[in-house]
Computed example of a mutant assay.
Amino acid sequence: MGYEARADTAERGPRHIPGSPMTPETAAESALLVGGPADGTRLRVVGRPAVVQVTYPCEPEGPTGGARVDALFVYRRDPHVESEPLRYGVDPASP
Rank of each mutant, 00 (worst) to 15 (best):
R76H: 03
R68I: 10
G13N: 09
D78T: 03
R48F: 03
C58G: 05
P63N: 09
V74F: 03
E4C: 14
F73M: 00
G40Q: 10
M22V: 14
F73K: 00
G13S: 15
R42I: 03
P37S: 01
P21I: 01
T23G: 07
P21Q: 01
A28Y: 13
E84W: 00
G40W: 04
V74S: 02
L86F: 07
P14N: 05
L33M: 03
P18K: 10
P14G: 07
H16A: 13
R42L: 09
S94H: 02
Q53S: 06
T41Y: 12
R48K: 12
V69F: 15
A31I: 01
P37M: 00
V45A: 05
A50M: 11
A71F: 00
A50Q: 11
V74M: 00
M22I: 12
H16W: 15
P63A: 14
P92R: 04
A7N: 11
I17C: 03
A10R: 15
T55M: 06
E4D: 15
E59M: 00
P60Q: 01
M1Q: 12
R42N: 06
G40E: 09
E29M: 09
I17P: 00
D91Q: 09
E29Y: 05
A50W: 07
G19Y: 08
L32H: 05
C58R: 14
E84F: 01
G62S: 13
E61L: 03
R76L: 07
A31M: 08
S83Q: 06
A50V: 12
V51M: 07
A93R: 09
T55K: 14
T41C: 11
P63L: 13
F73P: 01
V34L: 12
R12P: 04
E11M: 08
